[in-house]
């Protein structure tokens, strides 16, 4: 009976098309980090839709509405915690995924396009993280937005659409909310679709040190593995939401600069402390560097031991970021914008 029903579903829904072969090593944690990131994104979308029912995207009410959600709404604190921690877990798995792809040189010919799309997704995720930080409209949010506006103003006409002057009378928070819940997620979903399409088109990369083609498994077996990995990610998010509340301050005091950004942005806070214009200079340099990797690195070698320069760059990149995050976390700002 069950087999008959499954067969009906397979026939009607075309599930048998998912039976195509992929390398066996895809069923490992390091090759499932992208799937885990996708799981976190799914949690973010669902929890975000629920959060949107309680959020008032208005500078006068936004912070109070978040406090109301956390303090008064049944399970509101848990819902916000799940959204917050899903964002944190997504950041970690996404970075680890990018490191794995670089380490195994999976960005090389013919998969350059998917590296570029992946960097695009990462940029969109960082933007979503930033806009989400601003929406709670506490001191940290206000200062983040103030820095962003400073950069936007320095960009002249290119930054104009990102400032309040672009749509006078409309609170910028309102436009950021629109971007956070519609524009950016739509772009991300389209880019994820493209990312998945090119994984299917170019096939999952073979192991870098493989001497012969790997044994294959059906993709549905990998889906079962990803389902387990996704449930593990969900459990982790739920546990974190159950035990640790995300930070939430009171309404901002305009004109003050007293907080630090979330850890994902602390490195730029540290750079700003060294040299204020790095706020403008550093992000495009880093993005340009990441985008240039598959174009500059034309070496066909994929095994890490035979790519000393690339691995040195990777380790250096990680160390610099780690050092900036640690230093940014312990230092105090010495300048005044």
């Amino acid at each position: 009976m069950a087999n008959g029903f499954t067969k009906i579903l397979e026939d009607r829904l075309g599930i048998h098309l998912l039976e195509y072969d992929i390398p066996e090593h895809s069923n490992s944690i390091k090759y499932s980090l992208g799937g885990m990131t996708l799981s976190s994104f799914g949690v973010l979308v669902i929890s975000g839709i629920l959060l949107a029912q309680f959020f008032i995207p208005d500078p006068e009410r936004a912070n109070r509405s978040v406090h109301y959600l956390v303090d008064q709404v049944y399970l509101g604190w848990y819902l916000r915690g799940i959204h917050f921690w899903a964002g944190e877990v997504l950041t970690v798995t996404m970075i680890l995924h990018a490191i794995r792809v670089f380490f195994t040189a999976s960005y090389k010919n013919p998969r350059e396009i998917n590296w570029l799309i992946g960097i695009g997704i990462m940029m969109m995720m960082v933007t979503l993280l930033f806009t989400g930080t601003v929406l709670k409209w506490d001191q940290e949010a206000y200062e983040a937005l103030a820095h962003f506006l400073w950069v936007a103003e320095k960009m002249g006409p290119f930054g104009l659409p990102l400032t309040e002057a672009f749509a006078q009378g409309v609170p910028l928070l309102n436009r950021i909310y629109m971007a956070h819940i519609s524009l950016l997620p739509i772009i991300v979903i389209v880019m994820i679709g493209l990312h998945l399409f090119y994984i299917k088109y170019h096939k999952l990369s073979q192991l870098p040190d493989a001497t012969r083609p790997a044994k294959n498994i059906p993709f549905t077996q990998h889906m079962a593995y990803l389902r387990r990995a996704g449930s593990g990610i969900l459990l982790l998010i739920c546990l974190l939401a159950l035990t640790i509340t995300p930070p939430l301050g009171e309404e901002p005091v305009l004109g003050l600069e007293v907080t630090k950004p979330p850890w994902q942005f602390v490195w730029i806070y540290a750079l700003e402390n060294l040299w204020v214009p790095s706020l403008i200079v550093a992000p495009p340099i880093i993005i340009g560097f990441l985008l240039a990797i598959p174009i500059v690195d034309q070496n066909k070698e994929r095994y890490w031991k035979r790519r000393p320069l690339a691995i040195t760059v990777l380790v250096g990149f990680i160390l610099i970021f780690a050092a900036l995050i640690i230093w940014g976390s312990v230092t105090t700002m010495t300048h005044s914008m």
Partner: peptide, 30 residues
């Protein structure tokens, strides 16, 4: 005021009694 990017004082230090004290938000145990 948001378009005026001149921030007061330095991070974690504002001793002016006229400026409201800002308590930085932290992670807490549920």
């Amino acid at each position: 005021p948001k378009s005026d990017m001149k921030m007061e004082g330095s991070h974690n230090e504002h001793n002016d009694p006229n400026i409201p004290k800002v308590v930085s938000a932290e992670h807490k145990t549920v």
